[in-house]
Design a protein around this nucleic acid. Sequence first.
DNA 1: AATTCATTTCGTTAACTAACGAAATATAAA
DNA 2: TTTATATTTCGTTAGTTAACGAAATGAATT
Lengths: 115, 115
Amino acid sequence: MIEEKTKIFKALSDPNRLRILKMLQTKSLCVCEITDVLRLATSTVSKHLSILKSTGFIIETKDGKWVNYLINPRPPDARISSVLSTLDFWISDDQIIISDKQKVQKVDRNEVCSR
Amino acid sequence: MIEEKTKIFKALSDPNRLRILKMLQTKSLCVCEITDVLRLATSTVSKHLSILKSTGFIIETKDGKWVNYLINPRPPDARISSVLSTLDFWISDDQIIISDKQKVQKVDRNEVCSR
DNA sequence: AATTCATTTCGTTAACTAACGAAATATAAA
DNA sequence: TTTATATTTCGTTAGTTAACGAAATGAATT
């Protein structure tokens, strides 16, 4: 179905989801770490992650009370792999992406999550 | 700006716009020919075309009372060219795309447009 | 077992999108 | 210049989406 294919583009058509994907290309992160960088409500970030997960871009691994999200190393669809690998070239020069990456390097789960 | 980049994906995240792009990869078409294949209102098709045009995917050429739309041979952004060339591989196997192409081959402007 | 903390689900709201028909615009033919 | 035809613009409506906070869930610690 054609709608299946537009789903991939739809997943990429939101700025916050693109930022999440780029962050996860730096390192895997839990929900509250992403929330800290994006400055959105936890529930909003969780929703974005579920969209990226259902499309096949990312997977999750449970780690105690945390849920780690990471780029799917084995996407269900060659199109996903293709997009993920070209995403570097596509948006690495963007200022917000650069500063997101810097924040991601420094972010500490134990400091950020429990206030 | 990151929103500029999501615009490209947003343009591709609608089934009818994907169908239009694939049709135009077969041959250039006027609005009413596209309308005939998609079975949408003329104003709706016109809107889709303006979105694809403003993103840089397609251009228009005036031909008397007709406006021909065609794939932009010189896109403003390397990302557009990249997507356009991979679009073949992405969605050529889809049934609706195949039947669209068949209809496009047969469609006759002078027969279809003036009822 | 109760508490704490991370995350998800739910319900709501505001903004956005795709669709339509009607009216406006533009070009060609009569 | 009137008429016909192709397309665009406008206004409206229904459906979708992204955001939030509150409540529910799940897992570790006390």
